[in-house]
Design a protein around this nucleic acid. Structure first.
Lengths: 105, 105
DNA sequence: GCCTACTATGTCGCATCCGACATACACTCC
DNA sequence: GGAGTGTATGTCGGATGCGACATAGTAGGC
């Protein structure tokens, strides 16, 4: 599956921008992917800044450690909804959320 | 269902901020709802600014008119993913997306 | 080495979200 | 009133995302 491959690639250290192009995603699809990647980064950064483990965050948002791991890995089975929920649950301020979105460019 | 009611209310003209509180959503849930509402507004505004009908937008994003209607109505059966896809497909500029987020406060 | 804490990956059954379709409603123009 | 255009709402089967669990990998202290 294409989406899955993309996610694996990016998890392995691909810089956003090249990955989407590499796999030949259409423009709108690509934009959404970029956005997700930006937010995923924000989740991990925010969580670590707050000194939380994946388990801590999982409990806060009534989810599981494996889900958090998948979120941060950019797994294809993770929706934008869940990413944003995680970001909020991690305690990101409004400004931090905004910036994650802005960073998408 | 609670979420459904909320959505109906907001569609009927409730200002974001009061609706979530009114229904007693928890903080993180509320934040996500606020975000969705802000983006939903942006979808409609962007679409209309571009002179598109709901059908036009639906075709652009390979969806259906009824889905677009539900998006703009804040229907509970619409994910954040879909809202953002719609916003992108409507041709929202990066600045417009940003502003949608800022407006969320 | 072993133990502990943290993170990653695969799978599964259930819930939610999706596009599609039908249909109703609202307006305008003729 | 009828036709045309745009929007809203309800429903359905199939697709996707979810939490949970098991398990494996990784790093540090002892």
């Amino acid at each position: 599956m294409k989406a899955k491959k993309l996610k694996r690639l990016q998890a392995a250290g691909w810089k956003s921008g090249s990955a989407a192009e590499f796999l030949g995603l259409s423009e709108p699809e690509a934009a959404l992917v970029e956005l997700k990647l930006a937010l995923v980064d924000a989740v991990r950064r925010t969580r670590q800044k707050r000194g939380m483990s994946q388990i801590d965050l999982a409990q806060r948002m009534h989810s599981s450690q494996s889900r958090i791991a998948k979120i941060e890995a950019g797994d294809a089975s993770v929706s934008l909804d869940l990413i944003v929920r995680a970001l909020i649950a991690a305690g990101a301020s409004r400004k931090e959320v905004e910036q994650a979105f802005v960073a998408m460019g």
